[in-house]
């Protein structure tokens, strides 16, 4: 049987009050679909870090999650300032976060690194002053 489920969540930039709200909802829906264990754990980390990235750096964005029998594909599209040097942004510890973001314990330069670590497929592309597109694949 080939089942597919798809859901999308909008994320507002700069709104730290709701940080994690989309990821908690995504995790709840995935649990309902019977996803558990390591796959659920990795998806939660990937969506949370992506959500925090939109809030921290972009103007707004969307997290789209597609679940099939074989995998979970997550597409995160934002409109925002984009990333000038992706290689640098991927490096653990590198961050352009301001003091306010860092005081809350965000902006440690671990986000993209964590996402990649949790994914079986990872693609990132960005246009300065347009936005960033992140595609993540997690095998079930």
């Amino acid at each position: 049987m080939n089942r597919k489920y798809e859901f999308s969540f909008p994320v507002e930039g700069k709104n730290f009050d709701d940080a994690g709200k989309a990821s908690v909802e995504i995790k709840r829906l995935l649990k309902e679909l019977g996803i558990a264990g390591d796959v659920l754990r990795r998806t939660a980390i990937a969506t949370y870090e992506s959500e925090v990235n939109i809030i921290s750096y972009a103007w707004k964005g969307t997290i789209n999650v597609r679940v099939t029998d074989n995998n979970i594909s997550i597409k995160i599209q934002d409109s925002g300032p984009g990333i000038t040097d992706i290689e640098q942004a991927m490096r653990q510890g590198y961050s352009t976060a301001d003091d306010r973001i860092r005081e809350m314990g965000f902006g440690a330069g671990m986000g993209l690194f964590n996402i990649k670590n949790c994914s079986d497929g990872f693609e990132i592309s960005s246009k300065v002053n347009k936005g960033t597109l992140l595609k993540i694949l997690i095998n079930r």
């Binding site: 730290f16 940080a19 994690g20 990821s23 995790k27 939660a44 980390i45 949370y48 809350m104």
Partner: peptide
């Protein structure tokens, strides 16, 4: 950390 963002982290984990 005592701000509200810690709660979502704990829920997810």
């Amino acid at each position: 950390q005592s701000h509200q963002n810690i709660v979502a982290v704990s829920v997810l984990k």
